[in-house]
Design a protein around this nucleic acid. Structure first.
Lengths: 341, 341
DNA sequence: TTGTAGGCGTTATCAG
DNA sequence: CTGATAACGCCTACAA
């Protein structure tokens, strides 16, 4: 005689079937109640709910996923799990999804399109119900393609489509604000440290810088512009070059806070004081920008809200609604690192 | 042979069954080859491998999880997904697991034991193959209990058991090193900013501070000790109190870098220079401690390695081996924030 | 409104 | 060594 697994572990895991038995109904009825997929008589509903509470039943997401239903998990493609900027974003996603019973599945693509595609494959194989991509490098077309089967929320670009929602921040205006702030203080020779040109955010901020300069009637001087890649160390290097070049300038605008921190270190090593000898403005408003010396002027970027909004939009799509929401406008946070020349 | 699109997208997903058909074997045989769970003839093995390559077949982890009980995913309980300290740890875990085809499932417990238990339930319901708990607040007994069914690696405490491996850092010695460093420089009145007393790390560092003081024949003075909770703002507050108290001291040792950054800000607001007027030493060696002004002396804590080691130990347990590995000894990183009084 | 039957894609068991 | 066959826990037509 064959021994069935179910015979052996009669008292094993609490399954939907056992709930059905206890409640005296069929498994499908329990499923219906669980998913609200059909109307069930009040009496049976109550019996089932009692049984669920009594047994402490929790649906198995793995089985659910296999059966074609939802896995209640959302794939989140980030570029680095320990990114200082995206940290709050991940938290925002996590907290927002949690309110709806969804779990995020974080993977890191390391700023590489190929690796990003691989990440998405992994996520799909794990049957995630949706995808949130933070500043991915994949082409718009590739995204539109996969959004045909899987709802996607993407940040850092503007793109529309069925099952596709994007959340973009106005980096251009942010760049304008930072530059205008320095100009208003009386600066005319303002250096700029660029971010990675592959990063649309970075080029937008640069565009903002140039636009504000022009609006104020200040000639753009390419000798005051240095390249960086958003990491602290390149802020140090760029500022060293700037200082060594012999060019005169009274302020530095770095395309992100991390490079601004690097710039501050370089200035310190050159015995230049902030803001007495040199004004400094960053971009992002990282939490730590409040705790550097002196507290740094910067452009606020709502990283946490970005995560919340992305998750909310995803939940809306999953609910069949039209996703809504947009990021707040950029805002300059004036602190102590910027002053009159 | 050429691969035609029509072959790949024949009808829906590429399943194990289709591989079996193409190779002319049974699904069981394909499964055996995939898992190396039995010896298969070379000829069939080759046929199957060709079919897999031809179809681009990737096993479905969800189905695998249901059928075999293994999901190739490891639950990681962290306290905050955006913790500055644990960021590199998460990256270490992710990268190490990836080499073995495992994926991490991150959840945040927010320093709360109840929430931690809930997180673990979620993870178990998702059928993770193991659990890595970063400085959890759960009792040793609770951990031992759940480790009976699920292998666990835990950091921040020392505890043994079957299916349970712990990785602890020598915070006491770290505290000694930092204090000794200041004593050697000639400081006698050294203030200390404590971390959350609920945090074993924090009390160990405090113990190290007192021990080093005693070894140097310096009387412990509780008026030089202030409380904090590891956040920057409490470093500011503690230092303000210290300065307002009228006590004389020439150095501050903060139980972590974040509070040290706060202390630096407070000193700055009081027009005290670092290190000329006050020496400052932190703990953790966060990446940013190199980019503050002045670059901060601190005790190195190997956050990234912690993640790697935890993941490696987990993979060893999963492979039925005895987990090994331990954290490197603490090391003082002397930079510019500490000097002779 | 409810139950029955048949998957979802893979692994495990057992008989050859 | 290999192949049926029965799970794994749930969902979804299709019937009733």
């Amino acid at each position: 005689m064959k021994i069935k697994r179910s015979d052996i572990e009669k008292s094993g895991p609490v399954t939907l079937e056992r709930v059905a038995d206890l409640a005296g109904v069929s498994p499908s009825t329990v499923s219906r109640i669980l998913n609200g997929s059909a109307v069930v008589s009040t009496a049976k509903k109550k019996a089932v709910e009692d049984a669920i509470a009594h047994l402490g039943f929790v649906p198995n997401p793995v089985a659910r996923g296999l059966a074609g239903g939802r896995t209640l998990s959302i794939g989140v493609v980030t570029q680095a799990i320990d990114s200082p900027f995206y940290g709050p974003t991940l938290r925002g996603i996590e907290e927002e999804l949690d309110t709806a019973g969804y779990s995020p599945l974080f993977v890191s693509a390391h700023w590489d399109a190929a690796s990003e595609a691989r990440c998405i494959d992994v996520l799909r194989s794990r049957r995630v119900d949706g995808l949130i991509v933070l500043h991915g490098r994949l082409s718009d077309q590739a995204l539109k393609n996969t959004s045909k089967n899987l709802p996607i929320v993407i940040t850092g670009r503007s793109i529309k489509g069925p099952g596709l929602f994007s959340l973009n921040f106005d980096n251009f205006t942010g760049g304008v604000l930072a530059t205008e702030h320095l100009i208003k203080l009386g600066h005319r020779r303002i250096a700029f440290i660029k971010g990675d040109p592959l990063h649309p955010d970075a080029t937008e901020r640069f565009r903002g810088y140039k636009s504000a300069l022009q609006a104020a009637g200040i000639a753009f001087d390419s000798r005051l512009v240095m390249s960086g890649d958003y990491q602290e160390i390149t802020g140090v290097q760029a500022t060293n070059h700037l200082l060594d070049s012999g060019q005169k300038f009274t302020a530095i605008f770095a395309a992100n806070d991390q490079m601004a921190f690097g710039a501050a270190l370089s200035l310190h090593q050159h015995s230049l004081r902030i803001p007495e000898d040199m004004s400094l403005v960053g971009f992002d408003n990282l939490a730590r920008s409040l705790y550097v010396i002196p507290p740094m002027s910067t452009v606020n970027q709502p990283a946490y809200e970005l995560g919340q909004l992305a998750a909310t939009a995803m939940l809306q799509m999953l609910a069949g609604k039209k996703p809504t929401g947009s990021l707040p406008a950029p805002q300059l946070i004036a602190r102590d690192s910027s002053a009159r020349p």
